[in-house]
Design a protein around this nucleic acid. Structure first.
Length: 941
RNA sequence: GCAGGGGUACCCGAGUGGUCAAAGGGGCAGGGCUUAGGACCCUGUGACGUAGGUCUUCGAGCGUUCGAAUCGCUCCUCCUGCACCA
């Protein structure tokens, strides 16, 4: 028998074995109420960290709670194996990336296994097993393991193929040109922070430059690149870099002069480009002139060293009034050219760039940091508060923030400009080549911009349960903002072949939208009850859309499963999914399935971060591995930590010290539990009733908060407040064994969703039987409320607070304490006035007149008036609970007499209690007059 | 640029109009307990106060209100996502 030491490793292992051997996780459809919850399945990208466990754990807690409140729960899981991650991992193994190899070895992989992991499919197999055995099962998750699936399995691919047939059928697949990152050596690459494909530039954004065609005297075109086409009205000159070699290119019938780098990039974006073998040094262009399109004003070409051949065309148009770089270069050139101001903006004077450059004390073109800063200041101010002035012709008076596309479009439609896409910073491929942006003329997209699809989705959002509440407000805006998404890619990644274009693979966001539906089927595939050969369009149409005829009894079985379990009640995922996965999850359901199958809820949680709110990443030192943490802290400690440390929707900085505190908490509960089981029986009606009542109130709060998916409140009540109530009960001398055992039973059941292993153990100690996980969650019972005792204990605790404060302030060491209960008449007056106030009928004058008609009160009119005066403002501040307390008939004197022993013990002195109505009492300092209902007067000697 | 979320005491973090000098946890201080452990229990922890009180505080400022951490406006500041990463 256990003596109080809680061996969490042994206990957690024991109960996990019991659960999984008995398969208590399998979803059964035997009751009427069902609940389908799942988390956004993880990408297979390597070992996960303790941050990932946060969401998985939440999902399990909700699933367990629902299971214990009469729902039949389906909680499946799978792996998102498509896309780049597993290929990236395999590539790292192949090129013997030292960090990757080191980690694999740390996890105990031998050379043979490591060698196998050069194959991305093996990577998926290996990690799938790790996720199930070392993460999910280790954390006690009651996932329905009979439904595990992966997105690169044959069955899943059949399902995705079907999804795309349906999208096409609904006119939601379209073709149009697209610009995508591309390496001339390796093909398409992903530019993202994980830098799987690239070695530099993961933070690069794709910018859209307008290339404006300036014609020189000989008809050659000087293409200047700008992000602010509206500023053409303020151009005073052009900048070319005198030391850079430019080249001529032929585009259709035009000859352009452009940097060599720019020419190469542009050749991936525009048709009919020929790079001519005619090079020109920048110097040779100086002094020549060219014409501003639309305006036909001539401007000179000047020398600007800051013109970078690697940025766009390498040729810059100069707007010195509004661009600090141009302004400083102009000053340095010593040319007699006046800046032309075309934007009126408050605070920045008549030449904004000049003013800001002077404020920042910028003297030359080399002060790049300051110049960038100045550019940002000018641009922001102008963008938000600027208006185009009279120099801008027909655009006069338009806000800068509204103008951009207008000028751009006018230029383009007059064939005076082109668009060029360019990275905001250099991006280098793994092969060390420069990544460029390539135009794909006929890229396939899912048409998320579709009006009907968007508005139906938005309409449905109103009916959904979305947590946190803020996300529900945000989601319609995201659905509007969400544009068409390129859905296929040619190149190396895993996934389903696109049915309408050979050798192109569906990209991973698009193949993970409708997938909860596949969990219904995966069980039958896993159990070999259906062959994937059978799973064609006809099959899926029958199961999901109720179209066509059944070809086999198993089809009907699957279909009835689908109709029972679908739709999804909660899809749970991290905040990173808010603007990507959740919108497409919703929209694909709306696009393909009938209304009854639209998802019912979404829950988003925030992250575990490293110190300083940094995203957890192995390269930055990372944090503990999941399996290490499991042994160091225990699973239940971590589950409690995730639930209680903060709301589900804030980021938490990982802090192992805190987890240890939760570990202690669990051990203490275990000890307390053992102590209570053995307590010597003693009755005290007041305390016993109070404990029952208090627990019952908490049961109500706990159920309410769990039904709102508010883990923070629930875990606080279960693991802290109930604990505190028990300690108060014991301290006050409560020891009713029958009641305590009942409480322990309910308490351990309520702990189960959050700390299931501890609960099973406690349950076994208490009941000698198994599976608290399958018990019914306690519910509020209106009979189990004892208001009298609640008021009584409130009175006692307030009295102790007051007495302590007096002791503290006066520094008296009490020899004897006298307590004077409020006289009856004060109670009567308070109740009367409170009732009137609640009925909105409190009139001071009338009230006093009424009181004075009472002979007894009239005798004491001075005291009465003083008291009435005091309470007339006080009663306004009462809350509902206060009101209830004061309206109830409660005998403070009797309650205090019953608690006298306890008070004497606390204050370590004799205590005497007087009724306030008695005339001849010991009251040397005349304290008794301060007594009011529920707040006795105190005199300390 | 577009969109979203924050700033609460020594720290983490609840709190969205009165129950708030502000839950809970931690830290710190004092005390207790102990088969000595990251243990546990009690008290205190904005300031002042020899009687249960008073005063000041929730990023800054202004405003709405009988009443503001909470509502509005302006500002400062931090963070997050953004389409071929999932």
């Amino acid at each position: 028998m256990n003596t109080g030491k809680y061996d969490f490793i042994k206990i957690e292992q024991k109960w996990q074995n019991e659960w999984f051997e008995n398969k208590i996780y399998e979803a059964q459809k035997e009751k009427n109420k069902k609940f389908f919850i799942h988390f956004a399945y993880p990408g297979v990208s390597g070992y996960l960290h303790i941050g990932h466990m946060r969401g998985f754990t939440y999902c399990d807690i909700f699933a367990r709670y629902k299971r214990m409140t009469g729902y039949n729960v389906l909680f499946p899981a799978g792996f998102h194996a498509s896309g780049i991650p597993s290929i990236g991992f395999a590539k790292k193994v192949e090129r013997k990336d030292p960090h990757t190899i080191k980690i694999l070895k740390e996890y105990g992989c031998n050379d043979e296994l490591i060698n196998k992991l050069k194959d991305p499919n093996e990577v998926v197999n290996y990690f799938s097993k790790i996720y199930v055995d070392d993460y999910w099962k280790k954390f006690g998750l009651l996932i329905d393991y009979s439904r595990i699936m992966s997105t690169i399995s044959i069955g899943y691919k059949k399902f995705i193929t079907w999804q795309f047939l349906k999208l096409k059928e609904n006119n939601l697949l379209i073709k149009k040109p697209h610009f995508a990152p591309y390496c001339p050596n390796c093909g398409p690459v992903a530019v993202d922070k994980s830098e799987t494909d690239i070695s530099k530039g993961g933070n690069a954004e794709i910018l859209e430059f307008t290339i404006i065609k300036f014609e020189m005297d000989d008809g050659t075109i000087l293409p200047a690149a700008t992000l602010r086409p509206e500023t053409i009205y303020g151009i005073t000159n052009m900048w070319v870099n005198p030391d850079v070699e430019y080249t001529k290119i032929k585009i259709n019938d035009e000859i352009w002069i452009i940097s060599i780098e720019g020419a190469k990039k542009l050749s991936f974006q525009l048709d009919n480009i020929t790079i001519l073998n005619e090079k020109i040094l920048g110097k040779e262009l100086l002094g020549k002139k060219c014409k501003i399109p639309l305006l036909n004003r001539e401007v000179p070409i000047l020398s600007g060293h800051f013109a970078d051949p690697n940025v766009a065309t390498g040729i810059v148009m100069s707007v010195p009034s509004h661009a600090p770089y141009d302004y400083i270069a102009l000053i340095e050139s010593k040319e007699e050219i006046e800046p032309i101001t075309i934007i009126e903006v408050k605070e920045l004077g008549c030449i904004p760039a000049k003013q800001v450059c002077e404020e920042l004390k910028i003297n030359n073109q080399n002060e790049i940091e300051k110049l960038d800063n100045a550019t940002e200041i000018v641009y922001k101010k102008e963008f938000h508060t600027g208006y185009l002035n009279e120099k801008c012709g027909k655009y006069v008076g338009i806000k800068v923030s509204d103008i951009k596309d207008k000028v751009k479009n006018e230029l383009i439609s007059n064939n005076k400009a082109n668009i060029m896409k360019e990275f905001s910073e250099e991006v280098i491929c793994r092969c060390s080549g420069t990544v460029i942006i390539k135009k794909i003329p006929d890229q396939w997209f899912i048409k998320y911009s579709d009006y009907t699809l968007t508005s139906n989705s938005k309409k449905h959002v109103e009916k959904m349960n979305i947590y946190p509440q803020e996300y529900k407000q945000e989601l319609p805006g995201i659905l509007d903002w969400y544009d068409d998404r390129a859905c296929i890619r040619k190149g190396s990644w895993l996934g389903t072949e696109f049915p309408f274009k050979k050798d192109w693979i569906i990209e991973p966001i698009s193949d993970s939208t409708l997938y909860p539906a596949y969990y219904i089927i995966s069980k039958y595939v896993n159990e070999n009850k259906i062959s994937t050969d059978e799973m064609n369009e006809e099959f899926f149409d029958y199961i999901f859309l109720n179209k066509g005829k059944s070809k086999d009894s198993i089809w009907d079985k699957i279909k009835s499963d689908f109709e029972y379990w679908y739709p999804v009640d909660i899809n749970l995922g991290g905040k990173e999914h808010k603007t990507v996965h959740f919108p497409v999850f919703l929209m694909n359901h709306v696009a393909i399935l009938p209304y009854e199958r639209y998802p019912k809820g979404i829950f988003t949680h925030w992250w575990i971060t490293q110190k300083n709110k940094e995203k957890i990443s192995k390269s930055k030192g990372g944090v503990e591995h999941i399996s290490e943490a499991a042994i160091k802290y225990g699973i239940d400690s971590m589950r409690l930590y995730y639930s209680h440390i903060g709301s589900t929707y804030i980021d938490i900085e990982w802090d192992s010290e805190s987890v240890i505190k939760y570990k202690n908490r669990i051990e203490n509960i275990f000890k307390l539990y053992n102590k209570l089981m053995k307590i010597n029986d003693k009755r005290n009606v007041n305390l016993d009733n109070w404990l029952i009542s208090s627990l019952n109130r908490r049961i109500k709060i706990i159920n309410e908060s769990l039904n709102n998916f508010d883990l923070r409140i629930a875990s606080n009540e279960i693991f802290f407040e109930i604990n505190k109530d028990i300690l108060w009960y014991l301290k006050r001398g409560g020891a009713n064994q029958e009641i305590l055992l009942k409480l322990l039973k309910k308490w351990s059941i309520m702990m189960t969703p959050i700390t299931p292993h501890l609960s099973e153990e406690l349950w076994y100690l208490l009941q000698q039987n198994k599976f608290i996980s399958e018990k019914q969650f306690p519910q509020f019972k209106s009979n189990d409320i004892y208001e009298n005792e609640e008021i009584g204990e409130f009175l006692i605790s307030k009295l102790i607070d007051d007495a302590n404060e007096i002791i503290k302030v006066t520094k008296i060491k009490p020899k004897k304490i006298f307590i004077y209960v409020s006289p009856e008449w004060k109670k009567i007056i308070l109740k009367k006035s409170l009732r009137l106030y609640i009925e909105n009928d409190f009139n001071l004058g009338k009230f006093i007149k009424d009181l004075m008609s009472d002979f007894e009160l009239k005798k004491n009119s001075k005291k009465v008036l003083k008291y009435v005066n005091k309470i007339q403002t006080e009663i306004k501040k009462f809350n509902v609970l206060d009101q209830k307390r004061y309206l109830k008939d409660f005998n403070s004197y009797n309650y205090l007499i019953d608690s006298k022993d306890y008070l004497e013990k606390i204050f370590k002195c004799n205590i005497e209690i007087f009724k306030g109505d008695n005339e001849n009492i010991y009251d040397p300092e005349e304290r008794s007059k301060f007594a009011v209902p529920l707040r006795p007067a105190i005199y300390i000697q």
